[in-house]
């Protein structure tokens, strides 16, 4: 339910950004939008062409979902919207790489540590 609200709020923020322009809204709007993008890219989108990502166990889903929700619950301070989008694009990439590695493998935890290091 929390995730659904996050995606909805992200969509609302995206609409405002589209109407008012990147500079026309506070950076918090961008943050809200990119949090929903993170949830979308990491949890909602699945790469059916990838043998690992095509099969995701319940534990793994729960683990990843909690990790994403934890990030979405934090507040960040960005200088401008470009810094915000850059940061989240990096995170999305790390999370995607994590999705491509086997659950609880060494590479999986390496990516987790890399993500935690960025926060």
């Amino acid at each position: 339910m929390r995730g659904k609200t996050l995606v909805q709020r992200g969509k609302e923020a995206a609409e405002q950004i589209n109407i008012l322009g990147d500079d026309g809204v506070p950076v918090e709007y961008h943050e809200r939008f990119w949090k929903s993008e993170l949830l979308d890219a990491v949890i909602l989108q699945q790469d059916a062409f990838d043998s690992t990502d095509a099969y995701t166990s319940f534990e793994r889903q729960k683990y990843m979902y909690n990790m994403v929700l934890d990030i979405c619950g934090r507040s960040f301070t960005f200088e401008d919207f470009e810094a915000c989008s850059g940061f989240f694009k990096g995170l999305i990439n790390d999370f995607k790489q994590m999705n491509y590695t086997e659950f609880e493998s060494k590479a999986f935890h390496d990516y987790r540590k890399q993500i935690e290091g960025k926060l």
Partner: peptide, 10 residues
Amino acid sequence: SPAETAIKQE
């Protein structure tokens, strides 16, 4: 940049 493409690291 490679991160922007979000393609598998391998």
